[in-house]
């Protein structure tokens, strides 16, 4: 239903908003709403109903011509200075964003995997013959560290690659112009993907909440068993990794559409706030990692060093929510 309203707003956008025009616009909205509701009542799907209503709208030029209204000059002039984004560009941008979602998601999961591997290996060391000072123990500690370094390198490489891919579309950060027909198509497609996006967010949140279960269970059932603690942390990280992958991969796809339609987080005001959050993130997370590594090496207690991540994660989420909600 929101799509119909936006569609109508777009159709009337470049015409003078006289009293007469606005009156017809509100009549059209009532008509289209009635039509939509009736089709929904007949059992048609959301997309089908929206599609039919939009396809039966007709041609706004015909109506305006009959009303003796001519197009506003100013927005047209303004449009001339805007970069025009065509269908091909939009499609390739969406493809890049979809790929980036998967790449960034995999990158984060890879780093989490490295941390989990290191934790597991270092706590397993204590239970093997020879202990941590034996030859096998040293090999395991070393391979844990190498694994972490390798995973971080892989993750960072994926981040950098994704970033350079998206950099080709830097101009989308400024105001640009797309055709009405492309806008309509993108809106319908975003509508199509909306339920998948919602489901992925719900699943992600559930996974995040469920990720507390292994750690809590072990702290109740086997509070003194370091190795069980490490296993629980691994499970927790796996669940968080899966959740992050869902958030990022579906989030990037949705972002592609929002960006092209210049809606949601991509109005000028919101773009500024995202910049602040990005800057803080680039300082906070490396510090957290430094603290994690220092504490791990100095106190040789990787399991409790890990706690820094969920703590910083929650604080950071609270911070970004606060920045976003500030009017």
């Amino acid at each position: 239903m929101e799509t119909i309203r936006t569609y109508l707003d777009n159709m009337f956008q470049t015409w003078p908003q006289t009293e007469e025009v606005l009156k017809i616009k509100s009549e059209l909205l009532s008509d289209m709403t009635d039509k939509y509701n009736e089709m929904k009542a007949e059992g048609k799907s959301e997309n089908e109903a929206v599609g039919i209503v939009i396809s039966e709208f007709g041609n706004i030029d015909e109506l305006m011509h009959e009303m003796g209204v001519s197009r506003q000059e100013e927005p047209d002039d303004a449009y001339r200075n805007f970069r025009h984004v065509d269908k091909e560009e939009a499609e390739s941008f969406i493809r890049v964003k979809e790929g980036n979602g998967k790449r960034i998601g995999t990158g984060i999961a890879s780093i989490l995997f490295g941390v989990a591997g290191l934790t597991l290996l270092t706590s397993a060391v204590e239970n093997i013959p020879g202990g941590e000072d034996g030859f096998l123990g040293r090999i395991m500690s070393l391979s844990g560290l190498l694994l972490l370094i390798f995973c971080i390198i892989a993750g960072v490489a994926l981040f950098i690659y994704s970033d350079t891919q998206e950099n080709r579309y830097k101009y989308l950060k400024n105001a640009f112009h797309i055709d009405d027909s492309l806008r309509n198509e993108l809106m319908l497609r975003r509508e199509d993907g909306h339920s998948a996006y919602t489901i992925s967010v719900i699943m992600g949140v559930c996974l995040c909440i469920a990720s507390a279960i292994p750690v809590i269970s072990v702290s109740f059932l086997a509070p003194d068993n370091d190795f069980m603690g490490a296993v629980a942390l691994t499970l927790t990280l796996t669940l968080i990794g899966a959740a992050v992958y869902l958030f990022v991969s579906f989030g990037e796809k949705k972002e592609a559409y929002d960006k092209l339609l210049q809606e949601g987080d991509f109005t000028i005001e919101k773009k500024k706030k995202n910049k602040i959050i990005g800057m803080v993130a680039s300082i906070v997370w490396p510090i957290a990692t430094a603290v994690f590594l220092l504490r791990g090496f100095l106190a040789d207690d990787w399991a409790s060093a890990m706690v820094i991540y969920p703590v910083v994660g929650i604080l950071f989420a609270a911070f970004s929510a606060a920045v976003k909600s500030r009017a």
């Binding site: 009532s30 008509d31 289209m32 009635d34 039509k35 007709g58 041609n59 015909e62 109506l63």
Partner: peptide, 28 residues
Amino acid sequence: GYEISKSIREIAEEKYTMKETTLYSAFT
């Protein structure tokens, strides 16, 4: 508006649907 466009579709037995803008152009 909507009642009229619905009647047109019904009488035409779905063989013709008047577009919204055509309808309101005619009203004008």
